[in-house]
Structures are given as C-alpha cells and as structure tokens.
Computed example of a mutant assay.
Amino acid sequence: MHAELTASLAAIDAALVRIVEGGYGVCLRRGEPIGRERLEARPAAELCIDCAREA
C-alpha cells in the first residue's frame, strides 16, 4: 500500500512539472495530445491510450 501511494504521488508531482513546463496533456512517447477522456480518468497520465496499451 505504501509503495502504491508513493508511486501515485510521484506521478502527480511529474504531472505538475509538465503543467509548469507546458507539456501536460502530451504523450511522452508520441508527442501527440492525450485524449480528454483519458486525462479526466487519469489526470497524471503520461501516455496516450494507444501507447499505454502497448506498454
């Protein structure tokens, strides 16, 4: 449980950095926009749904 919370906090921190740097909502693998529905479901998502499925 502690590891899951730590991972969640790290993902949120990384998302906050992407917001500040202007890269929030952009897939880190493809460089394309992440779909709105995905970001609503997982606000800290780093990958679009297609890349997340491939991982």
Rank of each mutant, 00 (worst) to 15 (best):
M1K: 11
M1A: 15
M1W: 04
M1H: 09
M1S: 13
M1G: 15
H2V: 14
H2N: 10
H2C: 02
A3D: 10
A3G: 01
E4A: 14
E4Y: 04
E4Q: 12
E4T: 14
E4F: 05
L5A: 12
L5I: 15
L5V: 14
T6F: 06
T6Q: 12
T6A: 15
A7V: 01
A7R: 11
A7M: 06
A7L: 09
S8M: 08
S8Q: 08
S8V: 12
S8A: 13
S8N: 06
L9G: 15
L9F: 12
L9K: 13
L9Q: 10
A10L: 07
A10K: 11
A10E: 11
A10I: 05
I12V: 15
D13P: 00
D13L: 06
D13K: 07
D13Q: 07
A14T: 03
A14R: 04
A15N: 04
L16T: 10
L16C: 07
V17I: 14
V17H: 05
V17G: 08
I19N: 02
I19G: 03
I19F: 07
V20M: 06
V20G: 09
V20E: 07
V20T: 12
E21V: 14
E21S: 14
E21L: 07
G22T: 09
G22N: 07
G23D: 14
G23S: 12
G23V: 02
G23P: 00
G23R: 13
Y24R: 00
Y24M: 01
V26L: 07
V26E: 02
V26Y: 06
C27M: 08
C27W: 00
C27I: 04
C27L: 04
C27H: 02
L28W: 01
L28R: 14
L28V: 15
L28N: 04
R29V: 13
R29M: 06
R29S: 12
R29C: 04
R29P: 00
R30L: 10
R30T: 15
R30D: 14
R30S: 14
G31N: 11
G31L: 11
G31Y: 12
E32H: 05
P33Y: 03
P33L: 12
P33F: 05
P33M: 01
P33Q: 06
I34H: 00
G35F: 01
G35N: 01
R36H: 08
R36N: 07
R36K: 10
R36F: 05
E37C: 02
R38E: 03
R38D: 03
R38G: 05
R38Y: 02
L39V: 08
E40M: 08
E40H: 09
A41Q: 09
A41C: 01
A41W: 02
R42E: 07
R42S: 04
R42N: 10
R42T: 14
P43L: 05
P43K: 06
P43Y: 06
P43A: 12
P43T: 02
P43M: 06
A44W: 12
A44S: 13
A45L: 04
A45K: 00
A45S: 11
A45W: 00
E46H: 00
E46M: 09
E46N: 03
L47C: 05
C48Y: 00
C48I: 03
C48G: 07
I49P: 00
C51E: 14
C51V: 15
A52C: 02
A52I: 03
R53L: 09
R53T: 09
R53N: 11
R53S: 08
R53P: 02
E54H: 06
E54N: 04
E54V: 03
E54G: 06
A55P: 00
A55L: 11
A55I: 08
